[in-house]
């Protein structure tokens, strides 16, 4: 959804003929410090979300890969959550988080309040869970049952099976899921500004509010750069993590996603 906003705004600006390269540069130089700070914030917020989602999602995939009931329930829940518009989810989290932070001063010390970075990160984690969970699951279930059966029958312990067979074969799928989650989070994090979080959304929305096209374009340019950078990084990691033997197999198919 974040990407959609980006595309829409860019189109609007270009169509309205208000794109002035010089103006953007001036804007960038003027607000250098703030720019750098918000880039850092943006990276921090989206990365935290993906990290949290990974810590929860990857083990969860392993756990639910066995049973069919848990599996259906989980995937169903994730599906539903994905359909909630991000702004709505952000908004929904404000009240409960505010209440929690009022009752537990420790949380307030840590900087967790109803508005700001905390609800943004939490909401982004929830969205990031789906691609990570689903892709990890696909990887786990893609391991041939004959391989697992003969491995176990030859005397491999559960740990050895994970280490020697399951993880090497599943890792490429996990990285794929994390990459998707990362791209999604970078885009969605733009909306964090609306509930008081930092990040490049600050440039986009303040720019919109002040009718400063240059600010908006600045924000968008760096969002694009971050997205492209993260995508490239994870594609490289994804390639490195595929076992040599399977490279031809994995990369001969069309990797358009």
């Amino acid at each position: 959804m974040g990407i959609g906003i980006l595309v829409l705004v860019s189109w609007f600006l270009i169509a309205a003929g208000r794109l002035d390269a010089l103006g953007v540069l001036k804007e960038a130089l003027n607000r250098q410090d703030r720019l750098v700070a918000e880039i850092v914030n943006h990276v921090r917020i989206s990365s935290s979300a993906v990290l949290i989602a990974s810590f929860l999602g990857i083990p969860a995939a392993f756990l639910i890969s066995k049973g069919s009931k848990a599996r259906k329930a989980f995937l169903g829940l994730m599906n539903v959550l994905q359909t909630i518009p991000s702004i709505a989810l952000f908004g929904l989290l404000i009240a409960p988080l505010a209440a929690l932070s009022r009752s537990f001063p420790l949380l307030r010390e840590m900087g967790i309040r109803g508005i700001g970075d905390a609800p943004a990160i939490i909401a982004l984690s929830i969205y990031a869970l789906y691609p990570i969970l689903r892709n990890t699951l696909a990887g786990i279930e893609g391991v041939s049952p004959s391989v697992l059966d003969s491995g176990e029958a030859m005397g491999m312990s559960r740990r050895e099976m994970l280490r020697i067979i399951i993880i090497p074969l599943t890792l490429p799928f996990i990285v794929h899921g994390v990459r998707l989650a990362m791209i999604q989070s970078i885009a969605n994090a733009t909306l964090g500004k609306l509930i008081g979080a930092g990040g490049l959304g600050v440039f986009v929305f303040e720019g919109l509010g002040q009718y400063s096209v240059d600010m908006v374009v600045l924000g968008i340019i760096f969002l694009a750069l971050l997205t492209i950078g993260a995508d490239a990084l994870f594609r490289i990691v994804g390639y490195a993590v595929v076992p040599k033997a399977l490279r031809k197999q994995y990369y001969s198919e069309d990797r358009s996603s």
Binding site: S146, V147, S150, A153, M154, G155, M156, L169, A245
Partner: peptide, 22 residues
């Protein structure tokens, strides 16, 4: 279980060779 299995060779119709090992 594990020690027992290591004393018995096992081969099946689908072979089940580990695809990413030589």
């Amino acid at each position: 279980k594990i020690e027992l299995r290591r004393q018995m060779g096992y081969a099946i119709q689908n072979v089940g060779l580990i695809p990413h090992l030589t």
